[in-house]
């Protein structure tokens, strides 16, 4: 799959189908999408373009078998390039239980930051360093793909 950035417009993804046809998806910055089918004779042009609204995209991706969660997460990562956000649910019995964020030195160890914690349905946005994690908390982590993966390995070994 190839990705091309279109300044002022968005991002274009394209790939070749197993039968050799070039297809692409243009994701506008506001989230609208266009499905592109490239022309056989003039591979630089599109022989048909399908313009989709937000709802259309959802309907089509459901028909194609993708779950909505994937779609939403993809939308979130599109918004901020190079930034990954992940939700990490702590097990009830965990080493992190009773340890403050500062003492866990999570950012130092993983490179990712804990930007929020949810506990029993309540959100604690931007927790202070002395915030003490409990088993069962859900930690919202932000950072690079590698950093977030490292933090997940620490918190949910």
């Amino acid at each position: 799959m190839r990705e091309t950035k279109l300044p002022g417009v968005g991002v274009r993804h394209e790939f070749q189908t197993d039968r050799g046809q070039q297809v692409g998806v243009l994701v506008h910055r506001d989230g609208r999408r266009e499905v592109l089918v490239y022309d056989v004779d003039d591979p630089d042009a599109c022989s048909s373009v399908l313009k989709l609204s937000h709802d259309d995209t959802r309907t089509l991706s459901e028909l194609l078998g993708a779950t909505q969660v994937v779609e939403e997460v993809e939308a979130a990562t599109h918004e901020i390039e190079g930034l990954t956000i992940d939700w990490i649910e702590l097990r009830p019995q965990t080493e992190a239980d009773g340890v403050s964020i500062a003492d866990g030195a999570y950012r130092k160890r993983s490179g990712a930051s804990i930007v929020a914690v949810t506990r029993n349905g309540d959100a604690v946005p931007a927790p202070e360093p002395d915030f003490v994690l409990r088993g069962g908390d859900t930690v919202v982590a932000a950072g690079t793909v590698e950093g977030v993966a490292a933090l997940r390995a620490i918190l949910r070994p």
């Binding site: 091309t4 950035k5 279109l6 300044p7 002022g8 417009v9 274009r12 692409g24 243009l26 266009e34 592109l36 591979p43 630089d44 042009a45 599109c46 373009v49």
Partner: peptide, 13 residues
């Protein structure tokens, strides 16, 4: 309907 065309990035750049 040419936003998806291959020449378009060259125009926009």
């Amino acid at each position: 309907g040419r936003l998806g065309n291959r020449e378009t990035p060259s125009i926009l750049n």
